[in-house]
């Protein structure tokens, strides 16, 4: 894949080409592409004069970075302790069924990616689901299909 080097340069320069900000640069690139393309890792490593392997090591260590393309809408099912106790795993299970993908997967039409998250810190609303930054509180297995419908059909 071709990456927009001008945009990546802007990101690198924003952090003053400082190697310490490698993770931050990756995060910013991911915000543009919804994932972290290999070419972007390579490009950033080259400009910062760090080995590609070190960039890859960082990119795979932090779970908020994705090395594979993700869907248009990202569904985050919170599995923090409060959500776990209030039925979070059942919500994840319902999403897996409704979207016909497993956690971490993307629907074939590229519309949804399903991920779990350790805690979003809105425990009063457990079990919580966040789609593209929008929160759905006190979800039930019955409300899962309704949430999906707001964004389109999974197939």
């Amino acid at each position: 894949m071709e990456v927009d080097t001008a945009a990546i340069n802007t990101i690198i320069d924003k952090y003053g080409k400082d190697k310490s900000y490698l993770l931050a640069m990756f995060q910013d690139v991911q915000r543009q592409y919804r994932y972290l393309p290999k070419e972007a890792i390579q490009y950033i490593c080259d400009r910062l004069h760090i080995p590609f392997s070190k960039g890859y090591e960082v990119a795979t260590f932090y779970s908020s970075l994705s090395l594979t393309p993700r869907g248009k809408h990202i569904v985050h099912v919170c599995l923090g302790t409060a959500c776990h106790l209030r039925g979070g795993p059942n919500i994840l299970d319902s999403f897996e069924r409704a979207l016909n993908i497993k956690r971490g997967g993307t629907t074939e039409n590229g519309l949804f990616t399903l991920e779990s998250v350790n805690c979003l810190g809105a425990c009063a609303l457990a079990p919580l689901v966040r789609v593209d930054g929008h929160d759905y509180g006190k979800t039930t297995p019955g409300s899962v299909k309704k949430i999906i419908k707001e964004y389109g059909e999974p197939t």
């Binding site: 890792i41 080995p51 590609f52 392997s53 960039g55 890859y56 090591e57 795979t60 260590f61």
Partner: peptide, 17 residues
């Protein structure tokens, strides 16, 4: 520096990028 560790936890492994 051709090699690295990728991932974390039980998925950690030694690999090339």
């Amino acid at each position: 520096a051709a090699l690295c560790m990728s991932g974390k936890g039980p998925l950690k492994k030694v690999t090339t990028p």
